[in-house]
Amino acid sequence: MSENQLSRSFVKKTDLALKIITYIVSIGITALVIAPFVTLISGDIIDPAMKAARSESTLSFREAIDLVLRYTPLPGAFKNSMIISGISTVSCVYVSAITAYSLVAYEWKFRRIFNKFIIIVMMIPSNITIIGYYQLVWKFHLANKLCMVIFPAITAPLAVYFMKLYLEATFSKDILESARMDGAGEIRIFNKIILPLMKPALATQAIFIFLDSWTEYVIPGIVLVKDEKRPLSIMAMMFSGLAADMFEDPAIAALIIGSLTIFLVLPPIVLFAFLSKDIVEGVQLGSVKY
């Protein structure tokens, strides 16, 4: 009896220690993430140019935005980025979901082969298609078209695999049968019943797909070469190279690049804030059946 009590108190002690260590580690990582912003606000900034910006320049944030608007095609670039990332995220999520649904719900002949195919092409790094894509786009005179950036982003085998795992855990044939009994068409069933069912998986994938396409610069860089077609990521990169030459005062240049960056950083954060509560958790994803 006493031995039992002893071991129980020992377990409690190690539990407490583990808990404290976990808290310390996670708070340490949090501090590493947040510290740059604190230093940014308190004015003790790493970049000497930025430090000078605080003390000497009289440029307010509004004036900096005005300067950015005067020297760069910011609204157009922001719109391009929004079109590219928005359409490719929505269509990628939808196509992945419908592909995963076709793998789980229907018994077609090549289903198993297609499943293997998805697992194999997951391992292909997306970067190796770039050289061939470059030549194809220019050969068929399709450069400077936004859709040529969107199309390659629609198919994402990793997203299909993840959604398949999720659907296998949550989908049951009974829903399908009863909906068919009520006379719903297959596309209607998918849109009205299956998509809401998959909301957590859609949200999880949408965050990362949007982030990838928002910060992507390789494929837009080779396809979109006209100034008015460029997305924000490339425009910001080019402008931050130019700004140092354009403005004699490095402080003002740094300030302008900084205010441009806000537009680059904000949309992913806003999307994450909206979707983060829906990230998958606690569903028996592809777990071993017992």
Binding site: I124, I128, T129, G132, Y133, L136
Partner: peptide, 10 residues
């Protein structure tokens, strides 16, 4: 959009 460009690259 992936297989054809990949084959082209290779």
């Amino acid at each position: 959009f992936t297989f054809v460009p990949m084959g082209n690259s290779l």
